[in-house]
Design a protein around this nucleic acid. Structure first.
Lengths: 209, 209
DNA sequence: CCTACTATGTTGACATTGGCTACAAAAGTG
DNA sequence: CACTTTTGTAGCCAATGTCAACATAGTAGG
């Protein structure tokens, strides 16, 4: 038999690739460093040379996940079309990614990242908001949307689509198709932004604070 | 020393209560059945008499969580006020609960429940949607909101607020206060529903089962 | 070429965990 | 009282994450 070389060569990449498959099959809890090592034909402690601990591997997975997702979102935003179409396409790109990689999405937004997690990981999640804000600002400039705080509007849109993505990824939409939810959500958000928000509703606050 | 009674008496409740504290302190992964047992002064296998396995305990936690959350939401919806105020109050109840019990919320919406998880656990998550739908339907009847598929509208609102709750619970809103996000989100949704959605692209499915 | 030095992989060990079985005590129940 | 069921205990096992000690490979400098 061909004697295995002592050094794997691309163990780090192999670990990440295999781990990405594992978590989608068996969930994050189903991921075991030792199983991963066995699967790749290396010793049980080999992963430790590339990732300080299990969370470090998950952090790296999250980073890759954000890179891939942002690439899709940016690609969707750059496609031709009017503002509203681009808005819908961005939303669809986000939710589609979530449905395709539900567990990875959970890892990406998991709160428990290493204290020394890279700054990139901390800020890379905001790319989506930036893209949404750009489209909204353009549409406002073109008069298609009412003027308003496009920063906050983008955040609200991001938040709403994040909810749709999470629930769709978790298969928690009982009878509703993902696509019809995206359409309904983007329609509602766009209608609200087109109308503008004449009377901010602040009188509800109870004095319970 | 007072000899411990052989039977704890209320071990099941004690386990749930202590576990609820543990997960908020150390996350779901930080929860150990054995540690829990040590903490309550019982043997390491005692929890097994009340919960088939760890997931069964998490399922029970999730069930309790839904009960408490739904109680708050329903309470908010029954408070006096016009439709819009009640809508905002429901939203606030949801997000407030999420911020108060972030890890529990994740457990509640975790996909990996036992195959034999109670039917109650499967359907109890829809109470929030029902409450939102009722308010929307009333407001539509009163002419405050444009007519439309209140089932789908309620789902979109629920989804949006769920996103806000998840991100707020995860402390992922960098500079924005939770309250201003709630206000902006409910304002935008309400404005959209008041205007109505002129031209949906795709036909909408029938309501939830 | 020979010698460090570093990066990468291996082996062995340890504490901890979840889960199982067998047993013991308590609490009902006839 | 005899019995059954519930509740808790003690012991065991395989698996895991992490660590320290060692082995090998590649690389840089003399």
């Amino acid at each position: 038999m061909t004697s295995q070389p002592y050094h794997h060569g691309k163990l780090r990449e192999a670990l990440l690739a295999r781990a990405a498959e594992f978590i989608e099959e068996a969930g994050v809890d189903g991921l075991s460093l030792r199983q991963l090592a066995r699967d790749l034909g290396v010793s049980h402690a080999a992963p430790g040379k590339h990732f300080r601990d299990k969370q470090a591997l998950l952090d790296a997975l999250a980073l890759d996940g954000f890179r891939g997702m942002n690439a899709r979102i940016i690609g969707a935003s750059e496609a031709a079309g009017d503002h509203r179409s681009r808005f819908v396409r961005i939303a669809r790109a986000y939710v589609d990614f979530a449905v395709s990689h539900p567990v990875l999405l959970a890892v990406m937004h998991s709160t428990k990242h290493h204290p020394d997690a890279s700054d990139e990981l901390r800020s890379i999640g905001e790319d989506g908001i930036r893209v949404a804000r750009a489209v909204i600002a353009e549409a406002q400039g073109a008069g298609e949307l009412a003027p308003g705080d496009c920063e906050m509007l983008a955040l609200v849109c991001f938040v709403s689509l994040h909810g749709a993505a999470v629930l769709a990824a978790g298969n928690l939409l009982d009878g509703t198709s993902v696509d019809s939810l995206i359409v309904a959500t983007t329609d509602l958000l766009w209608a609200g932004m087109a109308t503008g928000m004449p009377a901010p509703h602040v009188s509800v606050k109870t004095g319970l604070a």
